[in-house]
Amino acid sequence: MAVVRALSQAGNPQEVARGLRAEFEAESSWLTLRVNGQQRKCPPGTSVRGYLDGIGVVQDGIVIERNGEILKNADWAGIELAIGDELEVVHLVGGGTTYG
């Protein structure tokens, strides 16, 4: 619907269509990851730090595990995410006992 509306309301529908297509193709080139067990996407070249910024992770005390390996905070900016990466983004929460 949004595409139809954008095209019908545009002064130059062809140009708008080209823009939308470029956006779509860019999106389709995005990498698929698993983050905390969920399927997620990000643009190629995204660093771990960039990804966290992108999803709004700002707090301290976060630990990142990538494909089973814990990353040092200092390395977050320099490591580029790759297709199929499995990230765990964890922190400490209240908990004294195991509850089902």
């Binding site: 983050v35 905390n36 067990g37 969920q38 997620r40 999803i55 709004g56 992770v57 707090q59 005390g61 976060i62 630990v63 765990e88 983004v89 964890v90 922190h91 400490l92 929460v93 209240g94 908990g95 004294g96």
Partner: peptide, 19 residues
């Protein structure tokens, strides 16, 4: 005090009750 390790909520409130 004892605390647990848990996944961060990616969407919505990410704040731990320990914050």
């Amino acid at each position: 005090i004892t605390v647990a390790v848990r996944r961060l909520h990616l969407d919505g409130d990410q704040r731990s009750e320990l914050a």
